[in-house]
C-alpha cells in the first residue's frame, strides 16, 4: 500500500484533512496545484470547498483539460462535496456553472440548506460491512438525477450520497472530517483493483 502515490487537489478547500486521512493509511501524498503535478500519481482526491472557486482556478491555470483527460483515460478520482459537484455532469440549481462533466449524475448545490442545516449521519456503505460509517454533511449537494451506469454505494433519506462509476468515486459528505478512515481505504482498494485489472489486460 505504501508505494501508492495519491494526489490531493490543493487549489482551495478542505484539503488538509484529506491529506491527514491518507497519511494515516500510509500512502504517499502529493499536493496538486498544476497540470504537471498530475503526472505520476496513482489517484486523485478532489476535496470539498467552494466549487465556484475551484472550477475558476482549474480554468484560469489551464488544469481543467489535463485533469479531465487523465480521468477519462482512467486516473482513479475521489470527489467529496465540492469534488462531487465538479465530477457531475451538471448542476440543476445553478445551470450556468460549469463542471468537469465526467460522471452521469446531476446535483443541486447546498440542497440540504445553509450551514445551520449541516448535519452528521451514520451511513451504511456498500463494501464497508455492517458497521455504519460516520459522515459529516456541510452545505452539501444532493444528487437529483442519476443514470443507471452509476452505482449507488450509499443512500441517506432516499438520496444517493456516495456513488461510483468506472474509475470515479464521489461522496456528498466529508469522510475526512472524522477519525474513521474506511472510506479512504475503499478508495485505495479501488485504485489497487483498477491497477491490477490494467496489468491483467497487458
Amino acid at each position: 500500500m505504501s508505494n501508492l502515490k495519491i494526489g490531493v487537489l490543493t487549489l482551495q478547500g478542505g484539503f488538509d484533512k484529506h491529506i491527514e486521512s491518507l497519511v494515516k493509511l500510509g500512502v504517499t501524498v502529493v499536493k496538486v496545484r498544476e497540470a504537471l503535478e498530475l503526472d505520476g500519481i496513482d489517484g486523485l482526491v478532489i476535496p470539498g470547498g467552494e466549487s465556484t472557486t475551484i472550477i475558476r482556478l482549474l480554468k484560469n491555470f489551464r488544469i481543467y483539460d489535463a485533469l479531465r483527460d487523465k480521468i477519462v483515460k482512467g486516473l482513479p478520482v475521489f470527489g467529496t462535496c465540492a469534488g462531487m459537484i465538479l465530477l457531475s455532469s451538471g448542476i440543476t440549481s445553478h445551470r450556468d456553472q460549469e463542471t468537469l462533466n465526467l460522471m452521469n449524475y446531476k446535483v443541486s448545490r447546498n440542497d440540504y440548506g445553509r450551514q445551520i442545516d449541516s448535519f452528521d449521519a451514520l451511513l451504511n456503505i456498500s463494501g464497508l460491512g455492517e458497521d455504519p460509517v460516520p459522515a459529516v454533511f456541510i452545505r452539501a449537494p444532493r444528487i437529483t438525477e442519476i443514470a443507471d451506469s452509476v452505482e449507488i454505494l450509499s443512500e441517506y433519506e432516499g438520496s444517493p450520497v456516495m456513488v461510483r462509476e468506472k474509475n470515479m468515486l464521489a461522496a456528498s459528505f466529508h469522510p475526512e472530517l472524522t477519525d474513521d478512515t474506511r472510506v479512504h481505504s475503499l478508495f485505495i482498494s479501488m485504485i489497487k483493483n483498477l491497477k491490477m485489472s490494467v496489468q491483467n489486460q497487458i
Partner: peptide, 28 residues
C-alpha cells in the same frame, strides 16, 4: 480528533462548524 485532546471532546455542532472553516481554507 482524539478524545484526549480538548477539540476531540467538543460537541458535534462545534466540530461541524470547524468543518465549514476547513472548507474555506486556501481561499479569500
Amino acid at each position: 480528533m482524539s478524545e484526549k485532546l480538548w477539540s476531540g471532546r467538543q460537541s458535534a455542532q462545534w466540530k461541524k462548524n470547524v468543518g465549514l472553516a476547513e472548507m474555506l481554507k486556501g481561499g479569500v
